[in-house]
Computed example of a mutant assay.
Amino acid sequence: MSAITSDAEPGLRERKKAATRQALHEAAVRLLMEHGPEKLTVEAIADEAGVSRRTFSNYFANKDEALFHGEVTRMRQLAAMLRSRPAEEAPWAALCAAAEDFCRQVGELDPEWFARSRMIRAHPSLLAAQIQTFAAMERELSAEVAARLGPSETSPVRARLMSATFLVVLRVSLTIWLEHPADVHYWDLARESLAEAGRGFA
């Protein structure tokens, strides 16, 4: 009986840690939307989530990490979908297919997400932090792309360039779509943009 309890404990600990991390992220988002970026501090996020400043530091290095935790999670889901694509699929085609699978899984974006995205784009410091977050995730995608390019591609430039282009296309498509969301579905715009950008990677 004790062995069963011991085996179950790590899973429970991980779930509790994930729940605390998510609670801190949601607290950061609430504070941003209710009070603006000026009031978004580590102390305020910890208080909103009902944890200590020290507990916050166990999960995130700063307020931006807490705020953009959702973006990191989504990008890791996208990277996992890329890994699951058939091995023989060309890198750019695999990236586009993974993005389409991801958009299909996410479904319709909720109004709160719209409002948050617009607020981030209205504040240069938040936008810079978001871009930095995507730059970090670019390296993870690059590793997956490099594996698909194979050992004959000795330079890391092509994999990095392809991953960076892919993320920029998604981000620019989102920016354009947020300006006119009623005119076209996001994925229709992103698909067209990816096809255009991918001509150089065919």
Rank of each mutant, 00 (worst) to 15 (best):
Arg13Val: 14
Thr55Ala: 13
Ala44Ile: 07
Leu189Gln: 11
Phe60Val: 01
Pro37Trp: 04
Ala46Phe: 08
Glu34Met: 04
Val172Gly: 00
Ala61Glu: 10
Ile176Arg: 11
Ala44Leu: 11
Ser52Pro: 04
Leu126Asn: 09
Thr55Phe: 03
Asn58Glu: 11
Arg121Gly: 15
Arg139Glu: 09
Val157Glu: 13
Leu161Ala: 10
Asp47Phe: 02
Ser142Arg: 13
Phe134Met: 12
Glu112Lys: 07
Ser52Val: 07
Phe60Ala: 07
Trp187Gly: 02
Leu149Gln: 08
Val145Asn: 05
Ala94Asp: 01
Leu12Trp: 09
Leu32Asp: 05
Ala122His: 06
Ile4Arg: 15
Arg104Thr: 14
Ser155Tyr: 08
Leu170Arg: 12
Arg121Pro: 02
Ala3Gly: 05
Leu149Pro: 02
Arg76Ser: 05
Glu138Ala: 13
Ala19Asp: 05
Gly11Asp: 08
Arg160Lys: 01
Arg76Ile: 02
Cys96Ile: 05
Glu153Met: 15
Thr73Leu: 12
Pro124Leu: 07
Cys103Glu: 14
Arg104Lys: 13
Arg53Pro: 00
Glu43Tyr: 10
Thr73Asn: 02
Val184Gln: 12
Glu140Ser: 07
Val106Leu: 13
Val51Ala: 09
Leu109Trp: 04
Ala87Trp: 03
Val172Glu: 04
Val168Leu: 10
Phe166Leu: 09
Phe60Thr: 02
Ala18Thr: 09
Ala87Tyr: 06
Leu126Ser: 12
Leu149Lys: 02
Pro181Met: 06
Leu109Asp: 00
Leu32Ala: 08
Ser163Ile: 03
Leu95Ile: 05
Leu95Asp: 03
Lys63Asp: 00
Asp183Ala: 14
Leu67Ile: 01
His35Cys: 07
Ile120Met: 00
Arg139Ser: 08
Arg118Leu: 15
Val145Phe: 04
Glu48Pro: 06
Thr5Leu: 13
Glu179Thr: 04
Glu112Thr: 06
Gln132Phe: 01
Ser57Met: 06
Glu89His: 07
Leu149Gly: 07
Ala202Leu: 10
Ala8Pro: 02
Ala79Trp: 00
Glu34Ala: 14
Met162His: 05
Ala146Trp: 07
Val145Arg: 03
Pro91Asp: 03
Leu149Trp: 05
Leu189Val: 09
Lys17Trp: 00
Ala99Ile: 01
Arg53Gly: 08
Leu167Arg: 13
Arg30Ile: 01
Glu138Ile: 05
His180Trp: 03
Glu196Met: 12
Arg191Val: 02
Pro156Tyr: 01
Leu149Asn: 04
Gly50Asn: 11
His185Asp: 11
Gly200Leu: 13
Glu192Tyr: 09
Glu34Asp: 14
Phe102Trp: 14
Tyr59Asn: 06
Leu127Trp: 05
Glu14Arg: 15
Arg158Glu: 08
Glu140Pro: 01
